[in-house]
């Protein structure tokens, strides 16, 4: 028990995100020394704006991971959302949201009703939804409603509107996950669905909600991306599944469920983005970047040793 001084539940949850906060601080210092431009407000805002979609997707992923699940289908949902949203039909956006919720429903249904392992279930929907996205929009293009373009380009006090929206969404999600009944029940379900059930938690409903939220957040990420790119792309979401899982793990949320929060994974996204940005500034080849990212991921994740009770 290394965390002898931190045995309270709230502190443990806060501590889980500590390594990634430490990492990003170190990274910021290194980058600040290496390149004066790296930490300029404009560069940071740019990175934030670029990562809004992944941040949204990661928030949803975190919610699922807290229940000891995993959602590989988020990337396909992002793609499908951009494909539908760029289709020029009158109700494109509501349609995209409905489609995403349907994916979440199917995921939760398979997991709850048929007892399919989350990885297999969401792997299946990932594949199927990818096909659907390609059907809707075989090649990139199309255009999104004018208000979406306006949203993507708007700024308030020098901050891009998408960044502000993402900040609000992340804040709300963080409060809900750490302070609400739903959040507590997520942790309970993730630690032991059986015990949570006996303890009076409606675990089925919690898992259903988690996958619905995950798909919904993926959809929001897709809408943001479609707005930003003013077009749809059936393959644009492909990296989001793995990236969101990596960021979630990096942010101290245990993939075995029951421990973690939203803040850590969001910082995880920013860490990976800042790392990529910094490695580019230092002129390091993409191939080395991939190796460095992989190694850092292992180091960061192994910093959360699984010595927490019962986890």
């Amino acid at each position: 028990m290394k965390l002898a001084g931190a045995t309270t539940a709230v502190r443990l949850r806060r501590l889980s995100a500590l390594p990634v906060f430490a990492l990003i601080a170190v990274l910021a210092i290194v980058l600040g020394v290496a390149s004066p431009h790296a930490l300029s407000a404009q560069n940071l805002i740019n990175i934030l704006n670029q990562q809004v979609s992944l941040i949204l997707v990661t928030v949803g992923q975190t919610i699922v991971v807290l229940t000891a699940g995993l959602d590989l289908s988020v990337g396909s949902v992002v793609s499908l959302t951009t494909a539908i949203a760029s289709h020029g039909t009158p109700f494109a956006v509501p349609l995209a949201i409905l489609a995403a919720l349907a994916v979440g429903l199917v995921n939760a249904g398979g997991i709850l009703r048929f007892g399919i392992h989350p990885i297999l279930m969401t792997l299946s929907t990932m594949t199927a939804v990818q096909g659907l996205a390609l059907l809707v929009r075989p090649i990139p293009g199309g255009t999104v409603p004018g208000w979406m373009k306006t949203y993507a380009g708007a700024e308030i006090l020098g901050l891009p509107l998408p960044v502000i929206c993402a900040a609000v969404v992340v804040f709300l999600a963080a409060v809900v996950v750490s302070r609400s009944r739903f959040g507590l029940h997520l942790m309970a379900t993730g630690a032991s669905a059986q015990s949570a059930l006996l303890g009076g938690v409606n675990t089925g409903r919690i898992i259903l909600l988690a996958y619905l939220l995950s798909s919904l957040f993926a959809c929001l990420g897709g809408l943001n991306l479609a707005a930003r790119l003013a077009s749809g792309d059936p393959l644009v979401g492909q990296p989001f599944g793995i990236d969101s899982i990596a960021a979630t793990a990096l942010g101290g949320t245990q993939l075995s469920g029951g421990l973690g929060g939203v803040a850590g994974p969001v910082v995880g996204v920013l860490f990976l983005a800042l790392l990529g940005n910094g490695l580019n500034l230092l002129n390091i080849s993409t191939y080395y970047q991939m190796i460095i990212k992989g190694v850092l991921l292992i180091l960061a994740v192994s910093a959360h040793r699984r010595n927490q009770p019962g986890l």
């Binding site: 309270t8 539940a9 709230v10 443990l12 409060v175 302070r179 609400s180 009944r181 959040g183 507590l184 029940h185 942790m187 309970a188 993730g190 630690a191 032991s192 059986q194 015990s195 949570a196 006996l198 303890g199 009076g200 938690v201 029951g258 421990l259 927490q308 009770p309 019962g310 986890l311």
Partner: peptide
Amino acid sequence: QEFILLPNLSVAENLFLGRELRTPLGLVDR
């Protein structure tokens, strides 16, 4: 026989699991 307390929650959270006390905002009243 198998305890149903959740190891990752605090004693208070376990005691109130499923019937949490809430603040006017709907959050858990720790």
